[in-house]
């Protein structure tokens, strides 16, 4: 059984067809990359999966571990193990990083029937994970994403992913706004979380991220559907010939 199953989904925004019958199957232990030009529907796909208001399906269905997501709100999907690393992480003024993380982690633990972590246990765990991600304690004391640099925001996203231990992680343009050093740190953080039980879907415009997070499968998204799938070599083809060549060939 696949971990994430997207079946022929169609979605409109403002009466415009954005996703036009997209299907994708992701199994445990796999990393999939979805590449596509601007306006191909990449961000719409990630919001649709995460269950954002206004991104309801017109037809088709999505399953997480065999369970349909249709009737699940965004927060239920998150607690069930679906994680979205945002392209533009949102600022929460006055909300401390540590308290935010703790609320999130305890919501997930409660859902899994695990005991909620008390303050001390949580801080200990968070510090351990943070140090691996090169996230300084000081950053956890600041308000969520407020005044963070582009690199810090992305690192904090991946730190949250590491703390929440999701089944399926969708990384939406995680490389945007990162210099090479930051890209490496973030990628290392993601790679450290790859295991046989979870799956990662990397949504990206450029191939360079895939040098660091090497995917098992690459899919080309164009005009609301996947027009070509292959191995990592497909990403190199995009790099060499651009999207236009692939789209015209399809």
């Amino acid at each position: 059984m696949s971990l994430l199953e997207i079946k022929n989904v169609k979605l409109k925004l403002d009466d415009k067809d954005i996703l036009k019958g997209l299907s994708l199957s992701v199994s445990k232990g796999e990393v999939h990359a979805i590449m596509g030009p601007n306006g191909s529907g990449k961000s719409t796909l990630s919001y649709m999966l995460a269950g954002r208001d206004g991104y309801e399906l017109e037809s088709g269905e999505v399953f997480l571990e065999g369970q349909s997501l249709s009737d699940m709100e965004a927060d239920e999907r998150a607690r069930s193990g679906l994680f979205l690393a945002f392209q533009y992480p949102v600022e929460l003024p006055g909300v401390g990083g540590m308290s935010f993380l703790r609320e999130a982690v305890n919501s997930r633990r409660k859902f899994l029937g695990e005991e909620e972590l008390d303050h001390l246990a949580f801080v200990k765990e968070a510090r351990k994970v943070a140090s691996k991600m090169f996230v300084k304690d000081e950053m956890l004391k600041r308000a969520v994403n407020v005044g963070f640099s582009g690199g810090e925001k992305k690192r904090f996203e991946i730190l949250q992913m590491a703390m929440l231990k999701p089944k399926v992680s969708i990384l939406d343009e995680t490389d945007s706004g990162l210099d090479v050093d930051a890209l490496k740190i973030v990628s290392d953080g993601v790679n450290a979380q790859r295991n046989d039980d979870n799956a990662i879907v990397v949504i990206t415009h450029y191939q360079r991220l895939l040098d660091y997070i090497v995917p098992d499968f690459v899919h080309i998204l164009s005009d609301g559907s996947i027009i070509k799938s292959g191995g990592p070599e497909l990403a190199l083809e995009v790099e060499k010939n651009g999207y236009a060549g692939l789209i015209n060939a399809a």
Partner: peptide
């Protein structure tokens, strides 16, 4: 709406 969605996506109701 962005702030709310961000929190919901982390599992908060």
């Amino acid at each position: 709406e962005d702030q709310l969605f961000y929190c919901l996506q982390r599992g908060l109701d």
